[in-house]
């Protein structure tokens, strides 16, 4: 799996489309240029060694670590919104109050677990 595929799958749990991949690759080049070699190396190491990038990004966001990973997640979220096939992730088209409440409550619990896992992954990455 390449970079775009890995990041997209970590966020959306599905496969990335070709136009989105192309847009991500182009934007990625532009935004990566502003980062130091150290940041880029740390990001590449994370891509290579860690499979649960979502957990790692979440912990990094709060610990101010791996800035490039955090940026690329945000980048993917912005770019994916522009494609019709992903619009459903952003826009609720029907009233689904019960599902909404359950999803948010479940999401809160899931995020807690992801955070703990992410902290653990950050430590693994530091020692690798």
């Amino acid at each position: 799996m390449d970079e775009a595929e890995k990041i997209f799958r970590s966020i959306f749990k599905s496969q990335i489309s070709l136009p989105l991949r192309e847009n991500f690759d182009r934007a990625s080049k532009v935004f990566t240029a502003a980062y130091s070699k150290e940041d880029i190396d740390a990001y590449n190491r994370a891509l290579e060694k860690i499979s649960d990038l979502e957990a790692l990004e979440f912990a990094s966001r709060y610990r101010n670590r791996l800035p490039l990973l955090v940026l690329k997640f945000k980048l993917m979220v912005y770019l994916a919104e522009t494609t019709p096939e992903n619009l459903g992730f952003y826009v609720n088209r029907k009233d689904r109050r019960l599902i909404g409440y359950i999803s948010i409550a479940y999401g809160g619990l899931r995020s807690m677990v992801k955070f703990i896992k992410g902290m653990f992954l950050l430590r693994i990455l530091k020692n690798a």
């Binding site: 966020i11 979502e54 990004e57 979440f58 945000k74 912005y78 992730f89 609720n92």
Partner: peptide
């Protein structure tokens, strides 16, 4: 505004932030 503008304001993991965007933003 783009829904993604709010992604940075929510405080959960990425997939769960998307749920917040979808169900909470309305």
């Amino acid at each position: 505004p783009a829904r993604a503008e709010f992604f940075q304001s929510f405080m959960l993991a990425s997939y769960d932030n998307l749920r917040l965007i979808r169900y909470m933003l309305p």
